[in-house]
Design a binder for these strands. Sequence first.
DNA 1: GGATAATGACTGCCAAAGCAGTAATTGCCG
DNA 2: CGGCAATTACTGCTTTGGCAGTCATTATCC
Lengths: 161, 161
Amino acid sequence: MSKQYYHASTYKSQFSIGYLVKRAHTMMLDVMEPLFEDHGFSFIQYVILAALRDGIVVNPKDICMQYRHDSGALTRVIDKLADRGLLERIRRSRDRRKVELKLTPAGHKVIESLIPLVVDKLNEALADFTKAEVQELLRLLIKLNSTLQAHLDPHVVAAEA
Amino acid sequence: MSKQYYHASTYKSQFSIGYLVKRAHTMMLDVMEPLFEDHGFSFIQYVILAALRDGIVVNPKDICMQYRHDSGALTRVIDKLADRGLLERIRRSRDRRKVELKLTPAGHKVIESLIPLVVDKLNEALADFTKAEVQELLRLLIKLNSTLQAHLDPHVVAAEA
DNA sequence: GGATAATGACTGCCAAAGCAGTAATTGCCG
DNA sequence: CGGCAATTACTGCTTTGGCAGTCATTATCC
Protein backbone atom coordinates (compact mmCIF):
# COMPACT_ATOMS: atom_id res chain seq x y z
CA MET A 1 0.00 0.00 0.00
CA SER A 2 2.42 2.70 1.15
CA LYS A 3 5.68 3.18 -0.66
CA GLN A 4 8.74 1.53 0.80
CA TYR A 5 11.51 3.92 1.73
CA TYR A 6 12.83 1.63 4.38
CA HIS A 7 13.32 -2.10 4.01
CA ALA A 8 13.85 -4.49 6.88
CA SER A 9 16.77 -6.11 5.07
CA THR A 10 18.74 -2.88 4.78
CA TYR A 11 17.49 -0.92 7.80
CA LYS A 12 20.05 0.93 9.87
CA SER A 13 19.00 3.08 12.81
CA GLN A 14 21.44 5.79 11.83
CA PHE A 15 19.28 6.73 8.85
CA SER A 16 15.93 6.22 10.50
CA ILE A 17 13.66 9.22 10.80
CA GLY A 18 12.66 7.89 14.19
CA TYR A 19 16.22 7.73 15.45
CA LEU A 20 17.15 11.13 14.06
CA VAL A 21 14.10 12.80 15.56
CA LYS A 22 14.72 11.17 18.92
CA ARG A 23 18.34 12.24 18.82
CA ALA A 24 17.44 15.81 17.94
CA HIS A 25 14.90 15.88 20.73
CA THR A 26 17.41 14.48 23.21
CA MET A 27 20.00 17.10 22.38
CA MET A 28 17.43 19.88 22.40
CA LEU A 29 16.65 18.83 25.95
CA ASP A 30 20.34 18.86 26.82
CA VAL A 31 20.53 22.42 25.53
CA MET A 32 17.28 23.79 26.89
CA GLU A 33 16.81 22.16 30.27
CA PRO A 34 19.68 23.95 32.01
CA LEU A 35 18.14 27.28 30.97
CA PHE A 36 14.96 26.54 32.84
CA GLU A 37 16.51 24.88 35.85
CA ASP A 38 18.57 28.01 36.35
CA HIS A 39 15.30 29.87 36.74
CA GLY A 40 13.64 27.25 38.92
CA PHE A 41 11.54 25.50 36.32
CA SER A 42 11.48 21.99 34.95
CA PHE A 43 11.21 21.43 31.24
CA ILE A 44 7.61 20.30 31.42
CA GLN A 45 6.74 23.42 33.38
CA TYR A 46 8.24 25.56 30.63
CA VAL A 47 6.39 23.58 28.00
CA ILE A 48 3.08 24.18 29.72
CA LEU A 49 3.66 27.89 30.11
CA ALA A 50 4.79 28.25 26.49
CA ALA A 51 1.88 26.18 25.18
CA LEU A 52 -0.57 28.35 27.09
CA ARG A 53 1.12 31.50 25.88
CA ASP A 54 0.76 30.48 22.25
CA GLY A 55 -2.68 29.00 22.50
CA ILE A 56 -1.52 25.48 21.70
CA VAL A 57 -3.45 24.13 24.65
CA VAL A 58 -6.31 25.28 26.84
CA ASN A 59 -7.19 22.31 29.02
CA PRO A 60 -5.10 19.76 30.90
CA LYS A 61 -6.38 17.16 28.47
CA ASP A 62 -4.79 19.07 25.59
CA ILE A 63 -1.42 18.92 27.30
CA CYS A 64 -1.76 15.20 27.94
CA MET A 65 -2.34 14.50 24.27
CA GLN A 66 -0.01 17.05 22.73
CA TYR A 67 2.93 16.22 24.94
CA ARG A 68 2.10 12.69 25.97
CA HIS A 69 2.09 13.54 29.61
CA ASP A 70 0.19 11.44 32.08
CA SER A 71 -3.06 12.94 33.28
CA GLY A 72 -2.39 12.19 36.93
CA ALA A 73 1.16 13.49 36.85
CA LEU A 74 -0.03 16.57 35.05
CA THR A 75 -2.50 17.48 37.75
CA ARG A 76 0.37 17.71 40.21
CA VAL A 77 2.54 19.82 37.88
CA ILE A 78 -0.34 22.22 37.36
CA ASP A 79 -0.87 22.33 41.10
CA LYS A 80 2.65 23.60 41.58
CA LEU A 81 2.37 26.22 38.86
CA ALA A 82 -0.92 27.37 40.34
CA ASP A 83 0.59 27.48 43.82
CA ARG A 84 3.30 29.75 42.47
CA GLY A 85 0.64 32.00 41.04
CA LEU A 86 1.63 31.52 37.41
CA LEU A 87 -1.67 30.16 36.15
CA GLU A 88 -5.20 29.64 37.34
CA ARG A 89 -7.85 27.02 36.83
CA ILE A 90 -11.18 28.23 35.56
CA ARG A 91 -14.40 26.25 35.42
CA ARG A 92 -16.54 27.47 32.59
CA SER A 93 -20.25 26.74 32.68
CA ARG A 94 -20.07 25.58 29.07
CA ASP A 95 -18.66 22.17 30.01
CA ARG A 96 -18.06 21.85 33.69
CA ARG A 97 -15.90 18.75 33.29
CA LYS A 98 -13.21 20.79 31.65
CA VAL A 99 -10.79 23.09 33.41
CA GLU A 100 -9.53 26.06 31.48
CA LEU A 101 -5.95 27.01 32.23
CA LYS A 102 -5.06 30.65 32.06
CA LEU A 103 -1.77 32.41 32.59
CA THR A 104 -1.75 35.06 35.27
CA PRO A 105 0.13 38.32 34.69
CA ALA A 106 2.97 36.79 36.70
CA GLY A 107 2.86 33.72 34.48
CA HIS A 108 3.03 35.85 31.36
CA LYS A 109 5.98 37.69 32.77
CA VAL A 110 7.84 34.48 33.49
CA ILE A 111 7.29 32.90 30.09
CA GLU A 112 8.19 36.10 28.27
CA SER A 113 11.43 36.23 30.20
CA LEU A 114 12.29 32.67 29.16
CA ILE A 115 11.50 33.05 25.45
CA PRO A 116 14.62 35.08 24.61
CA LEU A 117 16.82 32.39 26.15
CA VAL A 118 15.14 29.75 24.01
CA VAL A 119 15.37 31.90 20.91
CA ASP A 120 19.10 32.33 21.42
CA LYS A 121 19.68 28.61 21.72
CA LEU A 122 17.57 27.86 18.66
CA ASN A 123 19.49 30.38 16.61
CA GLU A 124 22.74 28.81 17.72
CA ALA A 125 21.47 25.37 16.76
CA LEU A 126 20.59 26.70 13.30
CA ALA A 127 23.72 28.74 12.83
CA ASP A 128 24.99 26.62 9.93
CA PHE A 129 21.66 26.63 8.11
CA THR A 130 20.65 28.90 5.28
CA LYS A 131 17.29 30.56 5.57
CA ALA A 132 15.95 28.29 2.86
CA GLU A 133 17.15 25.21 4.73
CA VAL A 134 15.43 26.31 7.92
CA GLN A 135 12.20 26.89 6.07
CA GLU A 136 12.42 23.55 4.35
CA LEU A 137 13.13 21.77 7.60
CA LEU A 138 10.13 23.46 9.17
CA ARG A 139 7.93 22.52 6.24
CA LEU A 140 9.00 18.88 6.28
CA LEU A 141 8.60 18.55 10.03
CA ILE A 142 5.14 20.05 9.87
CA LYS A 143 4.26 17.66 7.09
CA LEU A 144 5.61 14.70 9.02
CA ASN A 145 3.67 15.74 12.07
CA SER A 146 0.40 16.08 10.22
CA THR A 147 0.86 12.62 8.73
CA LEU A 148 1.60 11.16 12.14
CA GLN A 149 -1.35 13.02 13.60
CA ALA A 150 -3.70 11.59 10.97
CA HIS A 151 -2.25 8.16 11.51
CA LEU A 152 -2.86 8.37 15.24
CA ASP A 153 -6.28 9.93 15.28
CA PRO A 154 -9.12 7.47 15.31
CA HIS A 155 -10.92 10.03 13.21
CA VAL A 156 -12.78 9.23 10.03
CA VAL A 157 -10.49 9.15 7.03
CA ALA A 158 -12.72 8.20 4.13
CA ALA A 159 -16.05 9.60 3.06
CA GLU A 160 -19.11 8.22 4.76
CA ALA A 161 -22.72 8.80 5.85
CA MET B 1 27.26 36.42 16.23
CA SER B 2 24.88 33.78 14.88
CA LYS B 3 22.20 34.76 12.40
CA GLN B 4 18.78 35.43 13.78
CA TYR B 5 16.06 33.20 12.39
CA TYR B 6 13.95 33.54 15.46
CA HIS B 7 13.28 36.76 17.30
CA ALA B 8 11.86 36.98 20.79
CA SER B 9 9.35 39.58 19.69
CA THR B 10 7.77 37.36 17.05
CA TYR B 11 8.40 33.90 18.46
CA LYS B 12 5.57 31.40 18.30
CA SER B 13 6.06 27.83 19.50
CA GLN B 14 4.15 26.46 16.52
CA PHE B 15 7.04 27.34 14.23
CA SER B 16 9.83 26.47 16.59
CA ILE B 17 12.19 23.71 15.56
CA GLY B 18 12.23 22.64 19.17
CA TYR B 19 8.48 22.32 19.38
CA LEU B 20 8.19 20.54 16.05
CA VAL B 21 10.91 18.05 16.91
CA LYS B 22 9.37 17.37 20.30
CA ARG B 23 5.98 16.89 18.73
CA ALA B 24 7.35 14.50 16.11
CA HIS B 25 9.13 12.56 18.81
CA THR B 26 5.99 12.37 20.91
CA MET B 27 3.91 11.01 18.09
CA MET B 28 6.61 8.58 17.05
CA LEU B 29 6.43 7.21 20.57
CA ASP B 30 2.65 6.96 20.32
CA VAL B 31 3.08 4.93 17.14
CA MET B 32 6.00 2.75 18.14
CA GLU B 33 5.50 1.97 21.80
CA PRO B 34 2.45 -0.27 21.34
CA LEU B 35 4.47 -2.41 18.92
CA PHE B 36 7.04 -3.21 21.56
CA GLU B 37 4.68 -3.59 24.47
CA ASP B 38 2.82 -6.21 22.45
CA HIS B 39 6.04 -8.18 22.42
CA GLY B 40 6.88 -7.57 26.07
CA PHE B 41 9.38 -4.77 25.67
CA SER B 42 9.46 -1.17 26.74
CA PHE B 43 10.57 1.51 24.33
CA ILE B 44 13.92 2.00 26.04
CA GLN B 45 14.55 -1.73 25.86
CA TYR B 46 13.97 -1.65 22.12
CA VAL B 47 16.23 1.36 21.76
CA ILE B 48 19.05 -0.42 23.53
CA LEU B 49 18.73 -3.56 21.44
CA ALA B 50 18.55 -1.58 18.20
CA ALA B 51 21.49 0.63 19.16
CA LEU B 52 23.59 -2.42 19.92
CA ARG B 53 22.53 -4.09 16.67
CA ASP B 54 23.66 -1.10 14.62
CA GLY B 55 26.81 -0.35 16.55
CA ILE B 56 25.59 3.02 17.77
CA VAL B 57 26.61 2.16 21.32
CA VAL B 58 28.93 -0.30 22.99
CA ASN B 59 29.01 0.68 26.65
CA PRO B 60 26.30 1.74 29.09
CA LYS B 61 27.89 5.17 29.12
CA ASP B 62 27.23 5.50 25.38
CA ILE B 63 23.53 4.85 25.96
CA CYS B 64 23.39 7.40 28.76
CA MET B 65 24.78 10.11 26.54
CA GLN B 66 23.14 9.21 23.25
CA TYR B 67 19.68 8.78 24.70
CA ARG B 68 19.94 10.89 27.80
CA HIS B 69 19.12 8.03 30.07
CA ASP B 70 20.13 8.08 33.70
CA SER B 71 23.11 5.91 34.50
CA GLY B 72 21.51 4.36 37.54
CA ALA B 73 18.22 3.67 35.83
CA LEU B 74 20.07 2.19 32.89
CA THR B 75 21.90 -0.35 35.04
CA ARG B 76 18.55 -1.78 36.06
CA VAL B 77 17.20 -1.88 32.50
CA ILE B 78 20.32 -3.71 31.35
CA ASP B 79 19.94 -6.09 34.28
CA LYS B 80 16.54 -7.14 33.01
CA LEU B 81 17.70 -7.59 29.43
CA ALA B 82 20.64 -9.65 30.67
CA ASP B 83 18.35 -11.72 32.88
CA ARG B 84 16.25 -12.51 29.83
CA GLY B 85 19.38 -13.65 28.04
CA LEU B 86 19.25 -10.99 25.32
CA LEU B 87 22.62 -9.41 25.97
CA GLU B 88 25.69 -10.00 28.07
CA ARG B 89 28.15 -7.81 29.92
CA ILE B 90 31.80 -8.29 29.05
CA ARG B 91 34.75 -6.86 30.93
CA ARG B 92 37.63 -6.32 28.58
CA SER B 93 41.10 -6.04 30.00
CA ARG B 94 41.71 -2.95 27.90
CA ASP B 95 39.81 -0.67 30.29
CA ARG B 96 38.30 -2.57 33.15
CA ARG B 97 36.05 0.30 34.16
CA LYS B 98 34.03 -0.15 31.03
CA VAL B 99 31.48 -2.84 30.39
CA GLU B 100 31.00 -3.98 26.82
CA LEU B 101 27.43 -4.89 25.97
CA LYS B 102 26.94 -7.62 23.40
CA LEU B 103 23.78 -9.06 21.95
CA THR B 104 23.36 -12.79 22.39
CA PRO B 105 21.95 -14.87 19.53
CA ALA B 106 18.57 -14.65 21.28
CA GLY B 107 18.96 -10.89 21.46
CA HIS B 108 19.74 -10.67 17.77
CA LYS B 109 16.71 -12.76 17.00
CA VAL B 110 14.45 -10.48 19.03
CA ILE B 111 15.67 -7.23 17.52
CA GLU B 112 15.52 -8.61 14.00
CA SER B 113 11.93 -9.60 14.58
CA LEU B 114 11.05 -6.09 15.73
CA ILE B 115 12.73 -4.22 12.88
CA PRO B 116 10.10 -5.06 10.24
CA LEU B 117 7.37 -3.67 12.50
CA VAL B 118 9.29 -0.44 12.89
CA VAL B 119 10.00 -0.25 9.17
CA ASP B 120 6.30 -0.58 8.38
CA LYS B 121 5.36 2.24 10.71
CA LEU B 122 8.08 4.50 9.36
CA ASN B 123 6.92 3.89 5.81
CA GLU B 124 3.38 4.74 6.83
CA ALA B 125 4.54 7.94 8.47
CA LEU B 126 6.35 8.91 5.26
CA ALA B 127 3.60 7.83 2.90
CA ASP B 128 2.90 11.36 1.67
CA PHE B 129 6.57 12.19 1.10
CA THR B 130 8.40 12.00 -2.17
CA LYS B 131 11.73 10.23 -2.15
CA ALA B 132 13.48 13.57 -2.52
CA GLU B 133 11.62 14.98 0.46
CA VAL B 134 12.61 12.06 2.65
CA GLN B 135 16.23 12.43 1.66
CA GLU B 136 16.15 16.14 2.32
CA LEU B 137 14.53 15.65 5.70
CA LEU B 138 17.19 13.12 6.60
CA ARG B 139 19.94 15.44 5.46
CA LEU B 140 18.60 18.40 7.44
CA LEU B 141 18.04 16.37 10.58
CA ILE B 142 21.56 14.97 10.39
CA LYS B 143 22.88 18.48 9.92
CA LEU B 144 20.86 19.79 12.85
CA ASN B 145 22.09 16.95 15.01
CA SER B 146 25.71 17.52 14.20
CA THR B 147 25.36 21.21 15.02
CA LEU B 148 23.70 20.38 18.32
CA GLN B 149 26.34 17.78 19.04
CA ALA B 150 29.12 20.28 18.46
CA HIS B 151 27.32 22.81 20.59
CA LEU B 152 27.02 20.36 23.46
CA ASP B 153 30.45 18.82 23.40
CA PRO B 154 32.93 20.54 25.66
CA HIS B 155 35.51 19.72 23.03
CA VAL B 156 37.90 22.25 21.63
CA VAL B 157 36.46 24.18 18.71
CA ALA B 158 39.12 26.70 17.82
CA ALA B 159 42.81 26.22 17.21
CA GLU B 160 45.11 26.24 20.20
CA ALA B 161 48.33 24.98 21.76
C1' DG C 1 -36.82 12.01 29.36
C1' DG C 2 -34.06 8.52 31.66
C1' DA C 3 -30.73 4.87 31.78
C1' DT C 4 -26.15 4.12 30.09
C1' DA C 5 -21.82 5.21 28.03
C1' DA C 6 -18.16 8.55 27.42
C1' DT C 7 -15.37 12.36 28.89
C1' DG C 8 -12.22 15.14 31.91
C1' DA C 9 -9.89 16.05 36.13
C1' DC C 10 -8.31 14.10 39.97
C1' DT C 11 -6.37 10.52 43.84
C1' DG C 12 -3.66 6.49 45.51
C1' DC C 13 -0.48 3.09 44.47
C1' DC C 14 3.47 1.21 41.96
C1' DA C 15 7.26 1.33 38.69
C1' DA C 16 10.76 3.97 36.64
C1' DA C 17 13.72 8.01 36.16
C1' DG C 18 16.76 11.42 38.48
C1' DC C 19 20.21 12.41 42.08
C1' DA C 20 24.02 11.66 45.13
C1' DG C 21 27.37 9.00 46.70
C1' DT C 22 30.63 4.60 46.39
C1' DA C 23 34.14 1.59 44.55
C1' DA C 24 37.26 0.17 41.09
C1' DT C 25 40.09 1.46 37.49
C1' DT C 26 42.64 4.61 34.63
C1' DG C 27 44.77 9.10 33.17
C1' DC C 28 47.47 12.96 34.50
C1' DC C 29 51.25 15.64 36.39
C1' DG C 30 54.86 16.58 39.17
C1' DC D 1 56.84 6.23 40.61
C1' DG D 2 53.06 8.15 43.44
C1' DG D 3 49.38 10.99 44.60
C1' DC D 4 45.26 13.13 42.79
C1' DA D 5 41.70 13.89 39.51
C1' DA D 6 38.69 11.77 36.12
C1' DT D 7 36.00 8.01 34.39
C1' DT D 8 32.69 4.11 34.59
C1' DA D 9 29.37 1.25 36.48
C1' DC D 10 26.68 0.58 40.15
C1' DT D 11 23.55 1.17 44.74
C1' DG D 12 20.19 3.65 47.96
C1' DC D 13 17.02 7.32 48.28
C1' DT D 14 13.90 10.82 46.39
C1' DT D 15 11.08 12.59 42.83
C1' DT D 16 8.39 11.92 38.98
C1' DG D 17 5.73 9.39 35.60
C1' DG D 18 2.41 5.62 34.52
C1' DC D 19 -1.74 3.01 35.76
C1' DA D 20 -6.22 2.03 37.65
C1' DG D 21 -10.04 3.57 39.66
C1' DT D 22 -13.40 7.55 41.39
C1' DC D 23 -16.43 11.42 40.88
C1' DA D 24 -18.80 14.86 38.42
C1' DT D 25 -20.54 16.21 34.16
C1' DT D 26 -22.00 15.61 29.48
C1' DA D 27 -23.28 12.95 25.33
C1' DT D 28 -25.87 9.07 23.40
C1' DC D 29 -29.58 6.16 22.45
C1' DC D 30 -33.77 3.79 23.24
